[in-house]
């Protein structure tokens, strides 16, 4: 599995409606790139475009095509309520008519911290546990590119932190596009970050060093403050 870099340049349209112009977003190979910006600017639309999901959106310009090799994890866990955690993780293989790798699925469920809960249904799991199942389902796909669309925003602060650590560890080496509203999340997890507005995109400075970064790290706090600043300026303008 060699993860490719992503390049997203040009104007983002839905039908005849231009959401954003002059985007210049590059996601380095095998790293985490965060996409920040006000609501409604088309971050999720761009994410769906990268993931190859059907819709009326298009990028009028230059984009690396990675169709068919992109896994997606969204804010809703998208788990099948009638299936067990294990069955949810093996869903992809079963949907493609391929043999399901149950040993790997069990191993992944253990690694996301759900040992002993393999046969529980989503309704009997907490929000954080459900998102862990969804993470395992994303990981078993072994996609070189992963789009994370606000995957942790519905979780409480403590659970969110734990999930960020887990995801940073388990999705290391894959090209990750993380769409987020949370400046702290970007400061902790991103190797690169872009602020996206209707007028264009610009890179955001992040601390150096390995992820997930410590919340008490002063560089993280400073980056968080800078992102807050940039976001509020853009919104006020």
């Amino acid at each position: 599995m060699s993860a490719p870099a992503l390049r997203l340049q040009g104007d983002l349209w839905i039908g005849d409606n231009r959401l954003a112009r002059d985007l210049k977003i590059t996601a380095p190979a095998g790293r985490w790139t965060c996409l920040l910006g006000p609501s409604g600017v088309g971050k999720s639309t761009l994410g769906r475009l990268v993931a190859g999901l059907p819709g009326r959106a298009r990028l009028d310009g230059d984009a690396t095509a990675v169709r068919g090799r992109v896994a997606m994890l969204a804010q809703q866990d998208q788990l099948l309520p009638w299936a067990s955690a294990l069955q949810n993780v093996t869903l992809g293989a079963r949907l493609r008519g391929a043999p399901a790798d149950h040993r790997r699925a069990r191993d992944l469920l253990d690694r996301v911290g759900l040992a002993g809960l393999h046969h529980r249904r989503p309704a009997t799991l907490s929000g954080g546990q459900r998102q862990r199942v969804a993470l395992a389902r994303t990981m078993i796909e072994d996609s070189p590119v992963v789009v994370l669309d606000e995957p942790f925003s519905a979780l409480d602060a403590g659970t969110r932190m734990a999930m960020q650590d887990l995801a940073a560890r388990l999705l290391a080496g894959q090209t990750v596009l993380l769409i987020t509203h949370d400046p702290l999340e970007a400061a902790r997890l991103g190797h690169a970050a872009f602020l996206m507005t209707a007028q264009g995109s610009r890179p955001v400075n992040l601390p150096e060093g390995p992820t997930p970064r410590d919340v008490s790290d002063l560089a993280v706090t400073a980056a968080q403050a800078a992102i807050f600043d940039a976001l509020s300026q853009r919104c006020a303008a």
Binding site: R48, L53, P54, Q78, L80, L91, G92, L95, R96
Partner: peptide, 20 residues
């Protein structure tokens, strides 16, 4: 969300029908 899921998992239509 489930439509998106079966699409991003590259499901065969018949299997998506029976499994989801």
């Amino acid at each position: 969300p489930l439509e998106d899921l079966i699409h991003s998992l590259r499901a065969k239509p018949m299997r998506a029908l029976l499994l989801v």
